[in-house]
Simulated assay, not measured.
Amino acid sequence: MDEREELLAAACEENSLSMEELNEQYGPESFGNHEAVDRIYVTEATWSEHIASHPAILLDAEAYQMAVKVSEMMAELYNRMSAKD
């Protein structure tokens, strides 16, 4: 069992749901998916505003490039998950 499968099993147990029920509540076109998309948006906006543009990050070219990569990955995740809404 890989880490993702372990986390899925824990999510089922924590929410007292079967895998099918978990998919119904959090899968494509569900409120749970919409909630995840919203959380990604809020996190990326916070990241960009408070981390990626922080003067300490801007002063360190390598740190800035890392922060930009994180922003880009969050944008990709947002686009992937919002396509399921």
Score class of each variant (00 low, 15 high):
residue 61 A to I: 05
residue 36 A to Y: 04
residue 67 A to D: 04
residue 16 S to P: 04
residue 81 M to C: 05
residue 29 E to D: 08
residue 10 A to W: 02
residue 21 E to S: 11
residue 78 Y to S: 04
residue 36 A to I: 14
residue 67 A to T: 02
residue 72 E to I: 12
residue 4 R to W: 12
residue 63 A to Q: 09
residue 29 E to H: 08
residue 61 A to H: 10
residue 69 K to I: 06
residue 13 E to P: 02
residue 80 R to M: 12
residue 66 M to P: 01
residue 48 S to V: 10
residue 84 K to N: 06
residue 16 S to V: 07
residue 66 M to L: 15
residue 72 E to T: 09
residue 32 G to M: 06
residue 24 E to N: 05
residue 68 V to G: 01
residue 85 D to C: 14
residue 30 S to H: 00
residue 29 E to P: 01
residue 2 D to M: 11
residue 20 E to A: 14
residue 59 L to N: 10
residue 9 A to T: 13
residue 53 S to W: 08
residue 11 A to W: 04
residue 64 Y to S: 10
residue 72 E to A: 04
residue 59 L to M: 12
residue 33 N to M: 12
residue 51 I to D: 00
residue 30 S to D: 03
residue 61 A to R: 08
residue 3 E to F: 10
residue 32 G to N: 05
residue 28 P to K: 07
residue 28 P to N: 01
residue 62 E to T: 04
residue 81 M to V: 01
residue 27 G to T: 07
residue 81 M to W: 01
residue 53 S to D: 13
residue 15 N to H: 15
residue 11 A to G: 03
residue 77 L to D: 06
residue 9 A to H: 09
residue 9 A to I: 06
residue 10 A to H: 01
residue 42 V to F: 07
residue 78 Y to P: 02
residue 2 D to I: 03
residue 78 Y to H: 12
residue 30 S to N: 02
residue 53 S to E: 13
residue 34 H to R: 12
residue 5 E to P: 00
residue 37 V to H: 05
residue 52 A to T: 07
residue 64 Y to C: 03
residue 10 A to L: 13
residue 24 E to L: 15
residue 15 N to Y: 15
residue 9 A to V: 02
residue 3 E to V: 08
residue 67 A to G: 01
residue 78 Y to A: 06
residue 23 N to H: 01
residue 4 R to T: 14
residue 34 H to F: 13
residue 81 M to Y: 12
residue 20 E to I: 12
residue 51 I to A: 06
residue 40 I to C: 04
residue 26 Y to I: 01
residue 15 N to S: 15
residue 32 G to T: 07
residue 82 S to F: 01
residue 56 A to V: 14
residue 67 A to R: 06
residue 13 E to K: 15
residue 66 M to A: 10
residue 40 I to W: 03
residue 17 L to R: 05
residue 66 M to G: 05
residue 75 A to E: 08
residue 17 L to C: 13
residue 28 P to F: 08
residue 67 A to M: 03
residue 78 Y to G: 03
residue 33 N to V: 05
residue 21 E to G: 05
residue 13 E to S: 15
residue 42 V to R: 13
residue 10 A to G: 00
residue 12 C to N: 02
residue 79 N to L: 13
residue 43 T to Q: 08
residue 71 S to C: 08
